[in-house]
Computed example of a mutant assay.
Amino acid sequence: MPADGNYSTLLSLRGWSDDSGGPAHELAFSQSRGLYYRSGTTTNGWSAWRRVLVENISGNVGIGIDVPQEKLSVNGNIRAKEIKVEAANWPDYVFTSDYELQSLKEVENYIKKYGHLPHVPKADEVDANGISLGEMNKILLQKIEELTLHLIEKDKRVTYLEERMLRLENHADK
């Protein structure tokens, strides 16, 4: 009987009855919608039941978690080759003519007052609630696009000042 205390339907897989084919494996499907696994041999004993996943009445699936709150809740690290996040309202609006880019002085004042960039969540909010990868990518792209606009503006200013300096030097040499 798995650790949740409920009776289960068992599926057992065994190489040979004398364990010469390796350890046996059992899956237990519990009444509480959990899937458990254990393995072992008659000579070495069985490992403890380990919950593999649980599904609640809402169809939420949990791995290593008792009460999944999302369609997939994982208590642990996840490794994947790729994760695709669907996102709307991608921040290309930063490049429209009606976008109000804050001046660097306004950004500096905001940072001094609040301790983080405008429109970026505070560290304690992220610690408490986590953050959506899609939302954070949108925020980061918005900030990169804003920085790009500031760099373009600064580059134009530097070019203007360099040209002006050359004109003044040329005028002074005459």
Rank of each mutant, 00 (worst) to 15 (best):
K156V: 08
D98Q: 06
A24D: 02
G115K: 06
M165V: 07
A123N: 12
S73H: 05
H116Q: 11
K81Y: 09
S17W: 12
A80I: 07
P121D: 12
V61G: 02
G76D: 03
E135N: 10
V120P: 01
G5I: 06
L27H: 00
Q31S: 13
Y110I: 02
E163Y: 08
L149I: 10
L141M: 12
E108A: 14
L151N: 10
F95T: 06
L147G: 04
I139A: 02
E108P: 00
Y93F: 12
N137P: 01
K138P: 00
S132C: 11
D19M: 03
E145Y: 12
N109H: 07
L10Q: 04
L168D: 06
E26C: 02
R167Q: 13
H25L: 11
K174S: 12
I78D: 00
N89M: 08
R33V: 00
M136E: 09
G76C: 05
L104T: 10
I63G: 00
S32Q: 15
K113F: 10
V94H: 04
K122R: 14
L27E: 00
E82G: 08
S30E: 05
G134C: 04
R51S: 08
D124T: 10
V61F: 01
I57Y: 15
Y99V: 01
G40K: 08
E55I: 13
H171Y: 13
S132H: 05
L101A: 06
H119D: 14
V54H: 03
A24Q: 05
H25I: 12
N60M: 01
P91A: 00
L13I: 15
E82I: 12
L13S: 10
D66E: 14
G134D: 00
N77K: 09
Y36W: 15
E106A: 15
K113E: 14
D173F: 09
G22S: 02
L149T: 01
N137Q: 14
R79Q: 10
A123S: 09
I131Q: 10
P91W: 01
L117K: 09
R167S: 07
D92S: 13
G64A: 03
A87E: 10
S132T: 05
T148V: 11
R167D: 09
E125T: 15
K143D: 00
